[in-house]
Design a protein around this nucleic acid. Structure first.
Lengths: 159, 159
DNA sequence: CTTGCTCCTACAGTGGCTAGAGGATGTACG
DNA sequence: CGTACATCCTCTAGCCACTGTAGGAGCAAG
């Protein structure tokens, strides 16, 4: 009869995995919910919405810090939305840059694969291009600035 | 007079940072070089080439495990290059998928930003779209399979 | 009552590095 | 020869956003 939602149900409803929900609570992104007698977390519809918001933001590539700001903004509907707009815009710029880099990368990979004679490694264009950066047409990926957290000194990793 | 290259010089020559070179040695990607009397690493031209190979591969988004395979292939020039070709091809597929996802994402972000009335949060399209996934045109990012290491259960993070 | 599912905490591990402490070594200049 | 400074060494911890595991407790159905 209690209308508290168990963590598994919220997980199912929002698509956020159970350990991830607990992690979000731990880092203060999601408020700690009340517990049952048996010490189990009980969520309500607002938590559900908040988690949906978080998941969608993550899917769109916003990092936790930006999501924190966006959540604060959501909580105060009377304020200006300029901050949210700014965050979205700068994120859009980043996404566009990534697409440009990836497209250059795609062309280089295509050149590699097409150039492969399917013979011995000795004459393999794939290995050759990897070994000698001079044979690479698109050098742009060397110089792109990189201010993300993921792999600091490597420019194009885990695209 | 000795022709051993110091770690700093190799770093400068290859563009791989000093701690990263030591890290590559630690994980067995680069062989441990001989040392001087004073316990300093001394590299030669082959190490330099190997590091260039590694760096370029990383720039192209290959992960360490794939680079390990590619390096093994490079060391045996008499073998078939089919493996290298396969690795490059599957990587190309991944890159193309990422570009498709990012392009969809770009459109969604553009819709968000364009739709923002620059008024109050209450009527802000950015916040609205983030909160309600139903208003999202491109649902494809929900279902993309994701077999990379970087952020396991989050589909589109650090694009 | 037992089976099996969900839940709890706490801690370790992922990838690919980076940063810092605390010390040794090498070199250029006076 | 001394000294200042750059470069090197090892070791450990930290980054992000989680994921996985161990070891146990709670709860509903058969």
């Amino acid at each position: 009869m209690s209308h508290g939602i168990a963590i598994g149900k919220v997980s199912e409803a929002t698509g956020v995995k159970v350990p991830t929900i607990r992690y979000y609570e731990q880092i203060g992104l999601l408020p700690a919910p009340p517990r049952t007698e048996g010490n189990r977390r009980t969520y309500d519809l607002k938590d559900n919405e908040r988690l949906t918001f978080i998941r969608h933001s993550r899917e769109l590539g916003f990092d936790i810090d930006k999501i924190r700001t966006l959540l604060l903004l959501q909580d105060r509907p009377d304020q200006s939305c300029q901050d949210a707009d700014t965050i979205a815009k700068s994120h859009l710029v980043e996404v566009k840059e990534k697409i440009a880099s990836l497209t250059a990368l795609q062309h280089e990979l295509e050149r590699m694969v097409v150039g492969c004679s399917h013979g011995r490694v000795e004459t393999c264009r794939v290995i050759e291009i990897l070994a000698d950066h001079g044979k690479c047409k698109h050098h742009q990926h060397q110089h792109q600035h990189q201010h993300q957290h993921c792999p600091p000194s490597l420019p194009m990793a885990q695209i």
